[in-house]
Design a binder for these strands. Sequence first.
DNA 1: TCCTGGCTTGAATGCGCATGCAAGATTCAC
DNA 2: GTGAATCTTGCATGCGCATTCAAGCCAGGA
Lengths: 354, 354
Amino acid sequence: MPHRHATASDVARLAGVSQSAVSRAFTPGASIARETRARVEDAARELGYRPNAIARSLTTRRSRIIGVAAAYLQNHFYPEVMEALSRGLHARGYHLLLFTPDAGRDADPQLQEVLSWRVDGLILASTTVSSALASECRAAGIPVLLFNRTSLGTDVSSVTGENLRGGRLIAEFLVAGGHRRLAFLAGIEASSTSRDRERGFAGWLVEHDLPPPLREVGLYDFDAACAAARRLLARPDRPDAIFCGNDHMAIAVAEVARHEFGLRIPRDLSLVGFDDTAPARWPSFSLTSFAQPLQPMVDAAVALICEMIENPAAPTRHEVVHGELVVRGSARIPPEGCVSLGDRLVWRPPRDEA
Amino acid sequence: MPHRHATASDVARLAGVSQSAVSRAFTPGASIARETRARVEDAARELGYRPNAIARSLTTRRSRIIGVAAAYLQNHFYPEVMEALSRGLHARGYHLLLFTPDAGRDADPQLQEVLSWRVDGLILASTTVSSALASECRAAGIPVLLFNRTSLGTDVSSVTGENLRGGRLIAEFLVAGGHRRLAFLAGIEASSTSRDRERGFAGWLVEHDLPPPLREVGLYDFDAACAAARRLLARPDRPDAIFCGNDHMAIAVAEVARHEFGLRIPRDLSLVGFDDTAPARWPSFSLTSFAQPLQPMVDAAVALICEMIENPAAPTRHEVVHGELVVRGSARIPPEGCVSLGDRLVWRPPRDEA
DNA sequence: TCCTGGCTTGAATGCGCATGCAAGATTCAC
DNA sequence: GTGAATCTTGCATGCGCATTCAAGCCAGGA
């Protein structure tokens, strides 16, 4: 019953041309007479013909598919990334093969399958690859791009936000706000984002002869972050400001602080997040957060992966996309340094005119 | 520089067998001697061979790819659906080609491209197809499944939650809680979910000789829902209970009610949502919401699309997955009818023992 | 008129794999 | 020990398309 799909040969027969002509009619820039193309297009329309992307990929050896990994879609940040990525890649003629690795470890197992599709490139959001697989990809000429992660031992290109600077800035911001009992809520410890944010945060404090922050691990998970918040807030030397590794965890901490400990934010506790996701803007949270600008990051990723596809021999690159500390109501606001930027309030260290 | 991928012939040469043997070694159930398979596997390992999925698809005429559309990823519900779908399809050996149609209209334009990949099936979440394309798909033998939507004029299979019953139940719940000035916040008016929820809600009221609810449109969009909430709450005959077409909008309404109108929930205003997404469980919202059980819905969708692939001639089906009204703190709780179910409190109409 | 060069076109080929077919190898029953 | 049944195997072919190559066509210059 299911009608077979029309093939180029079917169209050729109807149009009275060769199969090659049909192929040329659907290949931009191919050598074909205007009139012939029109005849082919008519016939194609009549038969409902669309070139078979699979067959095309087989001969051209380019699939025009990008494998995209996204674990951790619970974090509002990533769905938005997916959507933007999808649009960006589409605009360049690529399709998007989605897979969801298990959170917290590298994407190897699922990656293997995706590689059998001879994807033109690989974008890994919130995951990493093993070095072994990364070099296998390099040998096979398949560009790999880490999004919002970098890889330690392995030389893989990446697009990230300013994790290090963000961490430093937040330390300075909280200290400028008068806080001295600081804490950091780490995400997944193996993740470069969590490490860099912490390194920036703790590093700035050390450099300024301030005690290192308290520390708990929230695994970038809501429930784990709640548990970490309970431990942190139950301490006799309860911190008066917490920098949370991302907004998702910051919201968890806010909930626990308010509803379980009866704390007022920011009077009793300042909270700063990272990512500036949609819920951060909801008045209930009004979260001060370091913004990773989504669209620029995605644009950079799309541009970079396309360059890598065109020139697989190019050296790896690490793009860092500039962000801002967006000031809202969840953390005490220092007396100076706030600047309005567009419709947002951002914070710049007062000594710094930049 | 990029090493070419090893092919079945390369492996065959190394293993001293024919290319057919290699193919059989990678085809479960094929007729091949245990020892031959071992030899092939060794050679394959040595060369880093993986069967080329594109070539395989070309010959088998099955791509083992499912096209998945997801607009509206802002709503927490859909990222979770994507993740579950990805896992479910993966478990059955399918891959997932993602595309993101423009919200609020049918997925036709992008669908055309996806069809050129000869996908084995199509799952559309929060979108629909035009009847024209739907019948084209049927003619081509490509199963189409709507997820969380149904299609009016067109005969396309679907998996939905109990939109109609949910709407009725919520009406009954709010009336049992003593409310009389009810309002409904619609999503996208063309969407079947919004229509069905409203039909259930308003229908129950009419049947019980109660006045129809006030009505505003929030387009399933946060900002639009905020604006709708402002209009609703500024009325002289302000409603004392609002049923919001989904949680995403309910949160918008909660924010406006609290932070712009100074209302207390549920003392001044009861709020009920739909979907029971993660934020509904956050204490700040503690949203009473009709749960569309994610995993059962996704399981049903995966099972259904697989059946449709195996039997393309089967008649269309409309699966409705049973849900519950989860009672939390955002709406006044009727004196009776609450039942605890697992770790949740759900509401059953008191007269009804089911 | 003849030749040159630019456009178009079709035939032929191959991308990498699965599979029908027939031949060869092996096993089993008798 | 023999014939039949069962397993394995390689050969050949085709999936639908892009692309190379050579041939055909036409316009323009000599």
